[in-house]
Simulated scan of single mutants.
Amino acid sequence: MSASVAVLDYGSGNLHSATRALAATGAQVTLTADAEQAWEADGLVVPGVGAFAACMAGLEAVGGPAIIRRRLDAGRPVLGICVGEQVMFEAGDEHGVVTAGVGVLPGRVERLRAERLPHMGWNTVAAPQESLLFAGVAGERFYFVHSYGVHEAHWPTGALLTWAEHGGDRFVAAVEAGPLSVTQFHPEKSGRAGARLLRNWVASLA
């Protein structure tokens, strides 16, 4: 039986593209704001586009932070994408306004230090050899659209970090920390490499 995946519906703009890409892996995908459906699924996906504060407000409106924490506390997989990655950190600083995040990863989301922003387009990433997400896609390019990211943090023991660089600025491209996986790039917009990454994640739910 194929894995069940819930995509958390909290008003973010790329929900449907993420849902389609996940369905293409063969998973049974449901787009939902219902807490119990989000809990019961084998995997929960939290996409996101736009501003950190707006995404957090949307998440809080559907009880998203509590759903995410409940799943992670129980060891149940969660995947965050783009701003859905960023909100997993402790805080986001946009235009001098600091907004609290879900706080399941240490660190602060800050404006990238590159001269040209946004960072938009295809970029390679440096993933650790032990990575499950990036199995079979080492050296491939992924699609980024963002002006903010995480530069450093006191990472959890055993966390696997994948890095990328734009304009000489090194930032976190992905984190794998126990049941939590996050990507700053959009796997659903990253062609065959992104499709393989999503298949890798869905396969880990079995």
Rank of each mutant, 00 (worst) to 15 (best):
L132H: 13
G107I: 07
V49Y: 07
A51V: 13
G58H: 10
R116T: 12
L160F: 00
V137M: 05
L31T: 15
F171P: 08
E90P: 10
F142V: 08
P128S: 11
W201A: 12
R76Q: 14
G107S: 04
E176H: 10
G149C: 05
H146N: 13
L112S: 11
A177Q: 05
V49S: 03
L31E: 11
Q37S: 12
R70H: 14
W39G: 13
E85D: 09
A91E: 11
A61K: 15
W201E: 03
A27D: 04
A177M: 00
P187L: 07
A18Q: 13
M56C: 11
S190T: 12
A18H: 04
S147I: 04
G121E: 06
T19E: 11
P106F: 08
G96D: 07
A53G: 08
G11T: 07
T124Q: 14
F89L: 09
L8Y: 08
V175D: 00
R196I: 12
E85A: 12
F89K: 02
L133H: 05
Q184K: 10
W163S: 11
R111N: 02
P77V: 06
A153E: 05
V62P: 04
A33Q: 07
A38Y: 01
P179M: 00
G13Y: 00
L133R: 11
A54T: 14
V45I: 11
E110N: 12
V78P: 08
T162E: 08
D9K: 01
P77F: 05
A159N: 08
A35R: 14
R71A: 09
G48C: 09
D73L: 13
V109R: 06
E140Y: 03
R199C: 12
D9C: 04
G107Y: 06
E115I: 04
E40Y: 02
S204P: 03
A66D: 15
L161H: 01
L180A: 10
R108N: 01
P187R: 03
F142H: 05
L117A: 07
Y143H: 07
P156R: 03
N123K: 01
L31P: 06
A177C: 09
D42E: 08
F134Y: 13
G43K: 10
F142E: 03
A135R: 15
V104Y: 03
D169C: 08
F89Y: 15
L160S: 02
A173G: 09
M56R: 12
A153C: 04
G194C: 06
G84D: 01
V49M: 07
G80A: 03
V102C: 03
S17P: 02
A61V: 09
P179G: 06
L59W: 06
K189H: 11
G191S: 14
V45L: 09
V5W: 09
G80T: 00
